[in-house]
Computed example of a mutant assay.
Amino acid sequence: NAYAEQWDAAGLRERLREVIAIDYPVDEWAKEEGIADEEILERVTKAADDLYAGKREKYGPEIMGQVEKAVLLRTLDNLWRDHIITVDQLRQVIHLRGYGQRDPLNEYKTEGFTLFENMISKLRENTTAQVMRVEVQTRPADDMLPDEDELPMMEAHHIDALTGEDELAEGPLLTVTPGKTAGKMDPKKPDTWGKVSRNDPCPCGSGKKYKHCHGAYV
């Protein structure tokens, strides 16, 4: 309820820049004839609401909701750890209040509650400051996938437990171009058989295993 000339308008303007990233001429507003502190508060609140609404419109409510949740949880985690350390330090020295004829238990409860309120205040301020400054960078889904020619070549191996040979590493491979199909297999033309496992029946139709037939010559 102080007079306008007693307001710390410059300090308020600096705090607005720190907390909600708004630089408004509060010191100029304070010089207006008949201005009241309620009107200053109303203008600042509207400016903050407009800034936040612009971010929600730019990034969408869903993305902003995720950002707010992530910022809130990270900030709370940091502040809560500091709060636990401070309360533990208070617990270790609170008994000294007894020398001043004060009840250590009541003192511990009072100061502990004050520390908790301060933590909540910092949580609101720090979360607001980060959310107001956040800039979300999105990438198209296509940019997250590697190009087809950048994918590594796939190889298959199977070691025969008896012979120690790699059954899938032998024999010719059919090269199949994407979008095309391999040619029809001809039992009389081994170059059309593609990859044949050593334990599979020989494509020539002999009834023998490939490793005991044409595979024996590869």
Rank of each mutant, 00 (worst) to 15 (best):
residue 1 N to K: 13
residue 211 K to D: 12
residue 88 D to W: 09
residue 90 L to G: 00
residue 151 L to I: 01
residue 197 S to F: 10
residue 16 L to K: 07
residue 38 E to Y: 02
residue 51 L to E: 14
residue 188 K to Y: 06
residue 148 E to V: 14
residue 148 E to N: 09
residue 132 M to Q: 02
residue 118 N to Y: 10
residue 70 A to I: 00
residue 56 R to C: 10
residue 172 P to N: 05
residue 93 V to F: 09
residue 185 M to H: 04
residue 76 L to I: 11
residue 140 P to W: 02
residue 109 K to Y: 15
residue 23 D to P: 07
residue 213 C to V: 04
residue 69 K to M: 11
residue 67 V to P: 03
residue 162 L to D: 08
residue 95 H to L: 02
residue 145 L to A: 07
residue 218 V to I: 14
residue 123 L to N: 08
residue 197 S to M: 04
residue 97 R to E: 14
residue 60 G to Q: 08
residue 160 D to W: 01
residue 146 P to M: 00
residue 12 L to Q: 03
residue 34 G to W: 05
residue 168 L to V: 03
residue 43 R to Y: 04
residue 54 G to M: 07
residue 217 Y to P: 07
residue 180 K to E: 14
residue 159 I to F: 03
residue 29 W to E: 01
residue 133 R to P: 05
residue 63 I to A: 04
residue 80 W to P: 01
residue 86 T to L: 05
residue 124 R to L: 06
residue 108 Y to A: 08
residue 10 A to I: 01
residue 52 Y to C: 03
residue 152 P to R: 00
residue 168 L to G: 00
residue 9 A to T: 03
residue 159 I to H: 02
residue 54 G to T: 03
residue 201 P to H: 00
residue 139 R to K: 15
residue 123 L to E: 06
residue 13 R to L: 09
residue 54 G to L: 01
residue 164 G to P: 01
residue 123 L to T: 14
residue 105 L to V: 12
residue 134 V to C: 06
residue 3 Y to R: 14
residue 55 K to V: 13
residue 214 H to C: 03
residue 100 G to H: 06
residue 139 R to T: 15
residue 5 E to T: 05
residue 108 Y to G: 12
residue 177 T to N: 04
